[in-house]
C-alpha cells in the first residue's frame, strides 16, 4: 500500500512539473505579443519596451521559467493587468465557489447515477430499466445551458422557489448558500449522473453474472446483501474510474453553469481573463486547473486502492 502510494505520489509530482512547463510555454505561445496585450491601446515602442522590461519578456525563457516557478511557489502569481488585483486573491475568492459547486454536482451525480444504475441492472428488461435508460439518454443529450435556462425559467422566475442568480458564502449563511447552489449543482450534475448511471448499470450487470454472486446466493444471502454489498462493491471500481475521467468535464461544465447562474466562480474568472487576454490571470487559472486534475487523479487512485484490495496489495491496477 505504502509503496503504491509513494509511486503514485512521485508520478504526480513529475506530472505537475511537466504541467508548469506546458503552462509557462503555452501562455507565451498565445497569438499576439504579450507586451502589446499588456499595453492596451498604447502602441508607442518606448512604452512597449518598458512593459517588456517590467515583466521580463526579453529575458531568456529559462530565466523567465525559473522566475515563474519560484514566484508561484511563494504564492505570487502576479497581478491582473486589468484590475491590478493579485491573481492569488482572485483565485482565493473564486475557487471556493467552484469547488463547492463541483462537489455538490458530484454528489448529485453519484447519488442519482449509482442509484438509477443499480435499479436498471437489477430490474433488467422491466419498466424501471426502460425509464432509467430513457432518463440517462435525456441527461446526456440535453445541454447544460438549456437545462440551466429552463431551471431558471420554471423554478426561479415563474415560481420563485430558487434564486435565479447570485451567491452567498457558506460561512455567512449556510442555508442561503445551499439555496443558491441547488439548481446549479443539479444542472451541472445531470450529465455526469447519466454517465455514472450507464457505467453503474453495465458494471452491475457484469458483477451480477459473476461466480461470486452465485456463491453469495448459495450461502443464503438475501437480495439486498447480494446486490448492495457483493455486486456493488465490485462495480464501484469501474464507476470510480469513470468519475475520475469525467471530472475534467465537470470543471468545464462549471464554467458554463457559473455563467448562467451568475456565480462568481473560477469559470467566470477564466472566461473574463481569456477574453481580455489578461496574461497573469490566464497563467494562474491554467496552473490551478492542471494542479486540480493531478490532485483529482491521485485521489481517484487512492479511492481505487481502498475499494479493490488487489490494487492496494499488489500495487498494480488490474
Amino acid at each position: 500500500m505504502r509503496s503504491y502510494l509513494l509511486s503514485r505520489l512521485w508520478q504526480s509530482a513529475v506530472t505537475l512539473v511537466l504541467a508548469t512547463i506546458v503552462v509557462f510555454l503555452g501562455v507565451r505561445a498565445l497569438p499576439g505579443d504579450p507586451a502589446l496585450a499588456f499595453a492596451g491601446e498604447e502602441r508607442d515602442p518606448a512604452s512597449l519596451a518598458a512593459i517588456r522590461a517590467k515583466y521580463g519578456f526579453d529575458d531568456s525563457l529559462l530565466l523567465q521559467y525559473w522566475r515563474f516557478v519560484s514566484k508561484s511557489l511563494t504564492g505570487d502569481l502576479g497581478r491582473s493587468t486589468r484590475t491590478n488585483i493579485p491573481v492569488t486573491d482572485m483565485l482565493a475568492s473564486a475557487l471556493p465557489v467552484t469547488i463547492e459547486l463541483s462537489a455538490l454536482a458530484l454528489g448529485v451525480a453519484i447519488v442519482i447515477g449509482v442509484g438509477a444504475g443499480v435499479v436498471a441492472a437489477v430490474r433488467r428488461g422491466r419498466p424501471a430499466e426502460w425509464a432509467a435508460n430513457a432518463l440517462a439518454l435525456l441527461g446526456l443529450s440535453i445541454p447544460n445551458f438549456w437545462l440551466g435556462l429552463m431551471a431558471i425559467l420554471y423554478l426561479s422566475v415563474a415560481t420563485g422557489l430558487f434564486p435565479a442568480s447570485g451567491f452567498v458564502s457558506f460561512f455567512e449563511d449556510p442555508i442561503s448558500n445551499l439555496h443558491h447552489l441547488v439548481l446549479p449543482a443539479v444542472v451541472l450534475g445531470t450529465g455526469l449522473a447519466a454517465v455514472v448511471m450507464r457505467q453503474t448499470r453495465s458494471s452491475m450487470l457484469e458483477a451480477l453474472g459473476a461466480d461470486y454472486i452465485r456463491t453469495a446466493r448459495a450461502k443464503g444471502l438475501g437480495p439486498q446483501t447480494v446486490i448492495g454489498v457483493h455486486a456493488l462493491r465490485n462495480s464501484l471500481v469501474v464507476v470510480v474510474t469513470i468519475l475520475g475521467l469525467q471530472l475534467g468535464g465537470l470543471i468545464s461544465g462549471a464554467v458554463v453553469t457559473e455563467r448562467i447562474f451568475g456565480l462568481p466562480g473560477f469559470g467566470k474568472m477564466t472566461l473574463d481573463a481569456v477574453f481580455q487576454r489578461d496574461y497573469p490571470v490566464i497563467q494562474g487559472v491554467v496552473l490551478v486547473t492542471a494542479t486540480a486534475y493531478i490532485v483529482i487523479n491521485f485521489l481517484v487512485d487512492l479511492t481505487y486502492s481502498l475499494i479493490d484490495p488487489r490494487i492496494r496489495l499488489a500495487g498494480v491496477p488490474s
Binding site: 461466480d211 461470486y212 443464503g220
Partner: peptide
Amino acid sequence: GDDLAYIFQEPMTSLNPV
C-alpha cells in the same frame, strides 16, 4: 448455506475478490 451447501468449479472466481 445452512443445511444445503454448495461448492463450485471455479475457485479463482467463486470468492468475492474485494
